[in-house]
Design a protein around this nucleic acid. Structure first.
Length: 262
DNA sequence: AACGCTTATCGTCACACAAG
DNA sequence: CTTGTGTGACGATAAGCGTT
């Protein structure tokens, strides 16, 4: 569990881990209902799900973190603050926005302080980038290993960054890198052909847009998958809660009947 | 092995929306 | 208004699987 519980009750898997050691590798995804006692469940093979120093914000005490092995984990209850909480009197519009609109990728990046990609982001290996670029007929050159240059982008500065090449063509050249990976410089114009006409410029822009959109689509699908996992997990959690409440009601009824007959 | 079906994944397009 | 981004929709492709 490396996400902060959002004010709308969802655990944002993209949120930064409070653990300074970085995100936990597990991918527990849970949904916590606002203003109610909640249960966080983990998959059977994921434990411990909370690293030391992780904080979960819930607005109700007595919430439970439960694993499928039946073990409970201590939950540090922190006052989430009234400003961020999801009050019952929230306007329907705002409430709907909160429930239906997930934070944009840009906002997530801003929240992360400068471009940390979520832990689920699959870093593009050199071979993948190779096939990616070659499959779209963009010639490229391997320039140098990434370890030769260090670029700091604040805490957790990892992920794909876009740099602008000063000696590039008007459209600029994209330099993508991932930690430990190589740099690739897409060559969109052959040497001596840099001053190409408007048609080439259009084609270059289109190529850039397609490349960006391709990556955006990937990211979008990844987030969508996580969101669906969250919903599925929520179903499981609510079913368990429902079952527990039914059992509790049953035992209370029996107890009541026993006392009544005595 | 060949075929058909299902499912997952990917790239692209079109559109809505936010920011400048 | 322009530009950039996120996402739904659509088609193409590959992989897995059962049937013949």
């Amino acid at each position: 569990m490396d996400g902060m519980v959002e004010e709308n009750g969802q655990v944002d898997p993209l949120a930064p881990s409070p653990d300074p050691q970085g995100p936990i590798a597990s991918s527990v995804q849970s949904v916590i209902q606002p203003n109610q006692q909640s249960v966080i469940q983990t998959a059977a093979n994921i434990q411990p799900m909370l690293g030391k120093g992780n904080v979960i914000l819930v607005s109700k005490p007595n919430s439970v973190i439960q694993t499928t092995q039946g073990s409970l984990q201590t939950l540090r209850v922190v006052d989430a603050g009234s400003d961020d909480s999801f009050s019952e009197e929230e306007s329907p519009k705002k409430r709907r926005d909160m429930l239906t609109r997930r934070p944009s990728y840009r906002k997530i990046l801003n929240d992360l302080g400068g471009g940390e990609i979520a832990e689920g982001k699959v870093e593009q290996t050199s071979s993948e980038a190779d096939s990616e670029l070659s499959s779209h007929s963009i010639p490229y050159h391997t320039v140098l290993p990434a370890t030769a240059i260090q670029i700091s982008s604040g805490e957790g500065g990892q992920g794909i960054h876009t740099l602008t090449m000063t000696n590039s063509t008007a459209g600029g050249a994209i330099v993508q890198y991932a930690q430990g990976q190589e740099f690739f410089v897409p060559v969109v114009a052959q040497s001596g052909n840099i001053s190409g006409g408007a048609g080439e410029d259009q084609a270059r822009k289109r190529e850039m847009r397609l490349l960006k959109n391709r990556e955006a689509a990937r990211e979008c699908r990844r987030k969508k998958k996580e969101y669906i996992k969250c919903l599925e997990n929520r179903v499981a959690v609510l079913e368990n809660q429902n079952k527990a409440l039914i059992d509790e009601l049953k035992s209370l009824k029996e107890l009541y009947c026993q006392q009544k007959t005595e």
